[in-house]
Simulated scan of single mutants.
Amino acid sequence: MYRRILVPVSGLAGDRRAIDLAAAICSSGETWLTLVYVVEVPQRYALDSELPDQIEQGTSVLEAAASYAQKVARGRWKRITTELLQARVAAAAIVDEAIERAADAIIMATTSRWHLGVLTQGETLPYILDNAPCDVVVIRVASESETRT
């Protein structure tokens, strides 16, 4: 049973799927849920630069995700916390946060896309799978072209 779950959010539809999965996995009110949004800071800026538009977007995404988590869990969470991080690379920040919070699991959503003729999930997922100090549970969200009506 997971007692500390970290869910990276980005403002996409997959966020709700990851939160739903986290809620389904947790059966008691003893689980701490941490929702994380990472603002990736370009190399041309200092890491602690003020990026008001990105910070505003991240805050909005975290508020929506926390509200959704509260609705779907119905008492499953002991506590919901949100964390807005600034980092050069989102994946490293997510792993560092999992270490800092002693997470038992990272639950995240991903999508597949074609890049240079290869089907990929991007750079974040492989890094987290290789470096996370805890279980990683991934849900691949089907693209609209893959869903059947």
Score class of each variant (00 low, 15 high):
135 D>F: 09
48 D>G: 10
32 W>M: 11
143 S>N: 13
112 S>R: 14
58 G>V: 00
34 T>Y: 09
58 G>W: 01
60 S>E: 12
12 L>M: 09
83 E>R: 15
147 T>P: 00
102 A>R: 14
106 I>S: 04
79 R>S: 10
35 L>N: 10
63 E>R: 14
28 S>N: 13
50 E>R: 11
70 Q>C: 03
28 S>R: 12
35 L>T: 07
128 I>P: 06
120 T>Q: 13
65 A>K: 01
86 Q>D: 05
108 M>W: 07
34 T>I: 10
104 D>Q: 08
22 A>N: 02
138 V>E: 04
7 V>L: 10
92 A>L: 09
74 R>V: 10
104 D>S: 06
129 L>A: 02
121 Q>E: 13
87 A>P: 02
113 R>L: 07
54 Q>E: 15
128 I>V: 15
118 V>C: 03
47 L>S: 10
117 G>Y: 06
8 P>Q: 08
110 T>M: 01
37 Y>V: 03
11 G>H: 05
20 D>N: 14
49 S>Q: 07
108 M>F: 06
78 K>H: 11
84 L>K: 04
119 L>D: 01
77 W>F: 06
119 L>S: 14
120 T>P: 07
92 A>C: 01
135 D>G: 07
105 A>G: 11
46 A>Y: 07
137 V>A: 12
3 R>M: 06
96 D>R: 12
26 C>G: 06
36 V>G: 03
12 L>G: 15
135 D>M: 10
82 T>G: 10
78 K>Q: 14
103 A>S: 15
140 R>E: 12
117 G>Q: 06
75 G>V: 00
131 N>C: 06
94 I>L: 12
145 S>F: 12
66 A>F: 02
3 R>G: 04
25 I>C: 11
138 V>N: 00
126 P>H: 09
96 D>G: 02
91 A>S: 15
11 G>W: 02
56 E>G: 11
